[in-house]
C-alpha cells in the first residue's frame, strides 16, 4: 500500500522548494529590481568545468558575454574573461524574511554580474526575479486557498448543520458560483475592483478575489460531511447530554471535515497560483517592478521577444516542479481519503 507513510515525500519536496522562494534574498544573487541598462536580454550564461584549452576546473565558471561582431543584440562568450562562481559572497542588501538585514548570497561572481537565466529588457537578473516572484505567486496561492477553505468551511458547516432555509439559500448561491467558468468569474470579480493599485494592495486584492471565487466547491463538500456527521450516534448522544451547538461543531463535527479540507487545499493552491499568474500576466494583477511569476512571463506577449529571446520562457519551465509537487500531494491525500478508488 503506497502513501501510508507518516510524512509524504511530496510534502518534503514542496517545503524545500518553498524554502528556496521564502529565503529568496539568500538564494537569489541580486536584487530583483536592480537594473543593468547596458545589458538587455542577455542570454543565460552557461556554467563550464572545462576551459577552452580542455583544462578541468573544480570550481564551475561562466564566460563573460560580449556583443558579437557587427551586431547589437547577439552576444557571444568572451573566452578570455572567465567568471568563476563564488559561494557565500557578499552582495546586495536584503532582509531575510523581511526582518534580518543581511548581505550574504549563496553564489555570485566577482567584478561582473552572472546571469544564469539571462536578463530581461532592463538587464534585471531573471533568476533573482523568478525567486522573488515566487513569493508573490506562491503566497497568493497559499493565502487564497486558506481563505477559500475557511470560507467554505464556515458556509458548508452553517448550511449542513442548521439546514432548512439557510441550507437552501447558501447552496443555491454556491450553485451560482459553480455555474460560471472560473476564469470568467475571476475576470468579472477583478473587473469591478480598482485597476491601478500598488503592489501590496494588488496582492491582497488578488487573495480576496481568489477566496471569493473558490469557496463553493469546498462548501458543498463540507456540507455533505457535516450532514452525515451530525447524525452519527455519538453526536446524537452528546446532544442528548445537553451539548451546545458550538461544542458539537467544534468537538465532534468539524474534525470530520479535516481530510476533505486538506485535499481541497492541496488541489486549490496550484490552481490559485496559476490564477494569480494569469491575472498578472494579463496586467490585472501585481504590477511591475515587483516581480511575480505572471508578469515575468508577460514579456512573451510581444512577438519580438518570442522570436528573439526564447530564454524568457525558461522561468515557466522552472515552475513545473512546484506544480508537480502540489499535484502529487493532492493525489496522495485523495488516495488516503479513499484508498480503494481507482486512481484518476
Amino acid at each position: 500500500m503506497r502513501g501510508r507513510r507518516a510524512i509524504s515525500g511530496w510534502l518534503v519536496v514542496l517545503v524545500a522548494l518553498h524554502a528556496c522562494v521564502l529565503f529568496a534574498g539568500f538564494f537569489a544573487p541580486y536584487d530583483p529590481t536592480e537594473q543593468d541598462r547596458g545589458r538587455p536580454y542577455l542570454p543565460p550564461m552557461r556554467l563550464h568545468f572545462l576551459d577552452n584549452r580542455g583544462h578541468f576546473h573544480a570550481r564551475p565558471f561562466a564566460y563573460a558575454l560580449k556583443l558579437a561582431e557587427g551586431s547589437f543584440d547577439q552576444y557571444e562568450e568572451d573566452t578570455r574573461r572567465a567568471l568563476p562562481l563564488k559561494f557565500m559572497v557578499r552582495g546586495a542588501n536584503y532582509r531575510l524574511l523581511g526582518l534580518l538585514p543581511s548581505r550574504l548570497h549563496l553564489f555570485g561572481a566577482e567584478n561582473e554580474r552572472i546571469y544564469l537565466l539571462g536578463s530581461d529588457a532592463y538587464g534585471r537578473d531573471q533568476l533573482s526575479r523568478f525567486l522573488y516572484g515566487g513569493r508573490v505567486s506562491l503566497f497568493a496561492g497559499l493565502l487564497g486557498a486558506g481563505v477559500t477553505v475557511l470560507l467554505g468551511l464556515c458556509v458548508g458547516a452553517a448550511a449542513g448543520y442548521y439546514g432548512g432555509w439557510r441550507d437552501d439559500l447558501l447552496m443555491r448561491l454556491a450553485e451560482l458560483f459553480l455555474a460560471l467558468p472560473w476564469l470568467y468569474l475571476l475576470f468579472a470579480l477583478r473587473a469591478f475592483l480598482p485597476l491601478a493599485v500598488g503592489p501590496l494592495e494588488a496582492f491582497f486584492l488578488i487573495v480576496a478575489v481568489l477566496g471569493a471565487v473558490g469557496w463553493a466547491r469546498p462548501a458543498r463538500l463540507v456540507r455533505g460531511v457535516v450532514l452525515s456527521a451530525k447524525e452519527r450516534d455519538f453526536v446524537r448522544a452528546a446532544r442528548g447530554f445537553g451539548a451546545t451547538d458550538g461544542y458539537l461543531l467544534r468537538r465532534h463535527i468539524l474534525p470530520a471535515t479535516s481530510s476533505v479540507l486538506l485535499t481541497q487545499a492541496a488541489i486549490l493552491v496550484p490552481q490559485f497560483i496559476l490564477a494569480e499568474m494569469t491575472l498578472s500576466f494579463l496586467g490585472l494583477g501585481v504590477p511591475e517592478p515587483v516581480p511575480s511569476w505572471g508578469n515575468l512571463l508577460s514579456s512573451l506577449q510581444q512577438y519580438s521577444v518570442l522570436v528573439s529571446y526564447w530564454w524568457m520562457y525558461l522561468p515557466a519551465l522552472i515552475m513545473l516542479p512546484f506544480f508537480l509537487g502540489y499535484l502529487g500531494l493532492g493525489s496522495e491525500l485523495q488516495e488516503r481519503a479513499e484508498p480503494y478508488k481507482i486512481e484518476r
Binding site: P270, L274, M277, T278, F281, L297, L300, L306, V307, W310, Y313, A316, L317, M319, L320, F323, L324, L327
Partner: peptide, 21 residues
Amino acid sequence: AALLVIPDLVLALGLLVIAVK
C-alpha cells in the same frame, strides 16, 4: 500526469515558442 502538471499558460507559451522556432 505530466500533461496535467503543465499549466495552460505555460503550455500555450511553450507551443508558441516552438511554433516560432
